[in-house]
């Protein structure tokens, strides 16, 4: 594993909101193809960490390097470009555009990335088991189906890293299984996966687990 390329590295990271330290002295190194689970109770700083890893938020102290580059040296625009080129984001609340169909929601990510390709978008949706729901609006889809649209959108630009914030938090057991099997497949394909979860079952599949508690690594 040590011969694998380093994807990201954080060292002594601190993130404060006012006097609240949401993350305190975090160290993490993720290599290409790894599956990392970030676990911990609500309010422990998991989402804050994901926001930092996806370049949507800045760090307060410490170091954060992405593929060898210092993240804090990137301009706002470079951050956006980096995110759309390298990162696929999956949210607990799905965050689909309500007036766009499943396939259009996926194509929107293509549009901001480069050019839209409807066939490609349909292919990815079919891969996550939604070949029969292409033209449906989010409101016409179940929670599990919406989450799979969200996953398809995250995958469409073939990112190196997938960042998922409690992707099964709003799903029932059956849909959780479907989503989990998608992640397993992606892991097999060699994608780097960073997954936040409450579920120890999902954590079991990870190569690495980072336990957070009150913003600190919980070694207990």
């Amino acid at each position: 594993m040590s011969d694998k390329k380093n994807v990201l590295k954080i060292k002594n990271l601190v993130k404060s909101f006012g006097d609240v330290k949401a993350l305190d002295n975090i160290n993490l190194e993720i290599n290409e193809g790894e599956w990392v689970a970030i676990m911990g109770p609500s309010g422990s700083g998991k989402t804050t960490l994901i926001n930092i890893l996806s370049l949507m938020d800045d760090i307060s102290e410490g170091e954060f390097t992405l593929a060898g580059d210092d993240a804090s040296s990137l301009s706002e625009e470079e951050k956006v470009v980096f995110r759309r080129e390298k990162i696929g984001l999956i949210f607990q609340q799905f965050h689909l555009i309500p007036y766009l169909s499943a396939v259009e929601n996926v194509m929107l990510a293509q549009y901001y990335h480069s050019v839209t390709d409807e066939e490609e978008a349909k292919k990815v949706l079919t891969k996550v088991g939604l070949g029969h729901r292409l033209e449906h609006l989010p409101s016409q889809l179940s929670g599990g189906e919406q989450q799979r649209v969200c996953i398809a959108r995250a995958l469409i630009n073939e990112p190196e890293v997938l960042l998922a914030d409690e992707p099964t938090g709003n799903l029932d057991e059956e849909n959780e299984k479907i989503v989990l099997s998608i992640f397993k497949d992606l892991h097999k394909e060699g994608k780097t996966i960073i997954l936040i979860t409450h579920n120890p079952e999902l954590g079991k599949h990870a190569d690495k687990v980072l336990m957070l508690k009150h913003g600190k690594v919980d070694k207990g």
Partner: peptide
């Protein structure tokens, strides 16, 4: 605002 935030998250620049 959520929609705009999402657009930014999935790669839209401010100029877009």
């Amino acid at each position: 605002s959520r929609e705009i935030g999402l657009q930014k998250a999935i790669g839209a620049k401010n100029s877009d």
